[in-house]
Nucleic acid binder design. Structure first.
Lengths: 244, 244
DNA sequence: GGCACGATTTGATCCAGATCATGGTAAATG
DNA sequence: CATTTACCATGATCTGGATCAAATCGTGCC
C-alpha cells in the first residue's frame, strides 16, 4: 500500500506519504500557498519540547529524532523520522519531546490553521493521517518490546532491521546483493534509541561483526550479507510481512 | 477536554470518549444496529495476535492489556486499555499483539464494515479517532522513556502515577484524602508492563512502602499519601499538565 | 602532510536487577 | 474445616550491561 501511494505521487513535487493524499490535482493547487520548505543540518533542533508550533510537516529527506530528556541528562529517542514521516499534531501545537536533525533534513511544512481546515474539509486526508498515526502507534509498541525485553545484541539487530525495512520499502533494493545501511546515527544516538550506553553499542556491533552477521565499513556504514540472519538475531517473529 | 466529553455524554448508554463523538442524537439511533456488548473475565484472551477481527471496540469497564510475546516466553505489555480506550484498527483487521482481560472487562463493539462507513461519512468521528490515536502515540512514547531509561524504582512510581492520573481524570477524586489504587494487575503483570521481573517489582514496592511513598493494603490495593512525592519518585518532569 | 580533537574501540571493574531458592499468606476447592 | 494452589515477600547469588579508563581511529583544518 505504502509503495503504491508513493508511485501514485510520481508527479508530485513532494514525494512522501503524508502529502500524497493531498496530491490530487485540486488539492495540490490549493496547497501551494500554505506549504513551504525548511532545511536543517545535523544536530539542529527542529522543535523544542513545549514550544508552540505553527506548522505541521512531513519529512522529505534525511533523518530526525524525537528525544525525551530527563533533568539529569538521561535521554531516550522515542522515534525516528524518516522520509514520508509526519511531524506535528493537528489540533495540538506543542509536544513534550524535542525533535532534532540527525542528518541533513528537509521538511515540507504546512501552516497549521489552513492545514487543519484542509483536514476538516477533506476526509481523505484525515483518513490518511489516521492510518499513518496508527502505523506509528504499532511501531512504537513494537519498540516497547525491544526496550523492555530484548538483550543488547538483539536490540542492535532490531534497530538495523527496522531501518533496513524502512529504507527498502521506500527503494525496493536489488535482491541478492548485500544490503547496505548508511547509518546517520552516532554510537551515542544508537544507544539513546535502544536504552543502552554507547560502549555497549560499540561492543555489540563488534561482536556481530566478529560473528559474520554484519560488516562494518568506516564508522557509519553497515553491510548486511544475510537479512534472514539479522532477523534471527533480532529475535523478531518470522513474519515481518504486512498484515491484512 | 476529556472530562468535558464525558459530561456531554451523560445520557449516552455508552459512557466513554470513543463513542461520545457518536452519541449525538442522530448517530446514536443509527448505531443501535451495528453495536453490541461483550464481557470478559480476568485472564480471558479478547483478541489473539494475527486473528482477523470483524469489530472495533471501546472499553466500557475494566482493564485489558496488549501483549507482545516472544517465542521463548519473554513478554511485554505494550499498552493498558482502560475505560474509554479504543481497541482495534479501522482499515486493518489484525494486529501483531494479543489483547487479554486483566480484570472483568466489558466492551462496546462495533461491526467493522458499518463502522468504517460511519467514519467515512462522519468526519467528526474520524477526527476524534485521530485525536485519540495521537494521544495514545504520545503515551506510548512516554512509556518508551520509562522502559529505556528509568530505574526499577522509578518505573514502579511511573506506573502508579500513570494509572492514578488515568483514574482521577475519569473520576476527579476528592483532593486532600489519600489516593487509592485498586491494582488489577498481579506482580507479574506489573513486571511485564515495566520490563522487569516480578521479584524486582515486589522488592521495589516494599522499598517504596518502607520509605513512606506508598502504603500497601492487602495484595492489590495501594494508597498514595502524597501524589507529589510519587511524581518525584517517578522522575517525571514536573508539569504533568495537559499541553495546549 | 601533520596536527588536533571528537568519535570509536577495547579493557577492567562494578552494580542494579535477574535468577535461583525458600517460606508465608490468602483465596479457592473439595 | 482441611488442603491445595496461586501469589507474594524476601534472602542468596549471579551476570549483563553500566561505569570508569585508556588507547586508536578518522576527519577536518592549517
Amino acid at each position: 500500500m505504502t509503495s503504491t501511494m508513493l508511485a501514485e505521487c510520481a508527479d508530485c513535487p513532494i514525494r512522501h506519504r503524508a502529502v500524497c493524499a493531498l496530491c490530487e490535482p485540486h488539492e495540490l493547487t490549493l496547497l501551494e500557498d500554505i506549504k513551504y520548505y525548511r532545511q536543517f543540518a545535523p544536530g539542529d533542533t527542529i522543535v523544542w519540547a513545549g514550544e508552540k508550533l505553527d506548522f505541521v510537516a512531513s519529512v522529505v529527506t534525511g533523518m530526525a529524532a524525537l528525544n525525551r530528556t530527563m533533568e539529569d541528562g538521561r535521554r531516550q529517542i522515542t522515534g525516528l523520522l524518516l522520509p514520508s514521516d509526519f511531524l506535528g499534531r493537528p489540533g495540538r501545537s506543542s509536544v513534550r519531546y524535542d525533535v532534532s536533525a540527525i542528518s541533513d533534513v528537509s521538511l515540507c511544512c504546512f501552516r497549521r490553521k489552513p492545514f487543519e481546515d484542509l483536514v476538516e474539509s477533506t476526509p481523505h486526508i484525515g483518513q490518511r493521517l489516521l492510518e499513518m498515526s496508527m502505523d506509528e502507534l504499532d511501531a512504537a509498541r513494537e519498540w516497547m518490546l525491544v526496550l523492555g525485553r530484548k538483550t543488547a545484541r538483539e536490540r542492535i539487530a532490531s534497530l538495523l532491521a527496522m531501518i533496513l525495512q524502512r529504507e527498502t520499502q521506500a527503494k525496493p533494493a536489488d535482491a541478492g546483493s548485500a544490503l547496505r545501511i548508511d547509518l546517520p546515527l552516532s554510537r551515542e544516538g544508537i544507544a539513546d534509541c535502544l536504552g543502552m550506553t554507547l560502549e555497549t553499542v560499540s561492543r555489540q556491533l563488534s561482536h556481530l561483526k566478529r560473528d559474520g552477521v554484519i560488516q562494518l565499513e568506516g564508522r557509519r556504514t553497515v553491510l548486511i550479507p544475510d537479512m534472514d540472519q539479522l532477523l534471527l538475531e533480532a529475535a523478531d517473529d518470522a513474519d515481518g510481512g504486512v498484515l491484512d
